[in-house]
Computed example of a mutant assay.
Amino acid sequence: MLHIIQRARKINFLVLMMALASQSAFALKDDVEQPLNIVSKEQIADFESNKAIFIKDVVATQGSMELHADKAELSRNSSGELQEVKAYGRPATFKQKQDDGKIIHSQSSIIQYLPEKNLLVLIGRATIWQDNSHVDGERIEYNTVTKQLKASNENSQGGRVQSTFLPQELKK
């Protein structure tokens, strides 16, 4: 009987992971083509090293995407392409509207985006959710191209990842 329960939990977890990952596949397609606007109390730019730092009450928007953080760092490679965005907060938050009208939310102490690797990394009390379905862990990695999500939790909650989903939300 225990084996059947454990197997059902694994199947439920996989269904949730696929549902959350597939939702990001439907992000508004023109968001990345929209202007990037960043507002903060202080901004520091180092043109020699292609870095910009935004400090205190950082709000960044691009299309339907919205980031809130205490501090954000942007860096570009030698070709001028975005190399990394790193946001810090208590927590830093990110949300984006999907083509189906639903909004995906995430929050963590650090939000790192590596566009060259198509990787979004949430570090420190990380949570990603849509409606009432969510995944919590110490670290969540999401590949925006392969739509694969990996959650781990080695530091808190006894080293476990927690997931909750409502089957009726997955049907939508």
Rank of each mutant, 00 (worst) to 15 (best):
I4P: 01
A8W: 09
N12E: 10
N12Y: 08
M17L: 12
M18D: 12
A19C: 08
A19V: 09
A21Q: 06
F26W: 07
D30Y: 07
E33F: 05
L36C: 09
V39N: 14
Q43G: 15
Q43I: 13
A45V: 15
E48F: 03
S49D: 08
I53Q: 08
F54D: 07
I55W: 05
D57R: 10
V58Q: 05
V59W: 05
Q62R: 14
G63K: 06
M65P: 02
E66K: 15
H68E: 08
S75N: 05
N77K: 09
S79F: 02
E81W: 01
Q83L: 14
Q83A: 14
E84T: 13
V85Q: 12
G89R: 07
P91Q: 03
A92F: 01
T93P: 02
K95F: 07
K102T: 08
K102C: 00
L122A: 00
I123M: 00
I123V: 07
A126Y: 01
A126C: 00
I128V: 11
W129K: 07
D131E: 14
N132S: 15
S133E: 07
R139A: 01
V145K: 15
K147N: 14
Q148V: 06
E154T: 15
G159F: 12
G159S: 12
L170P: 11
K171R: 15
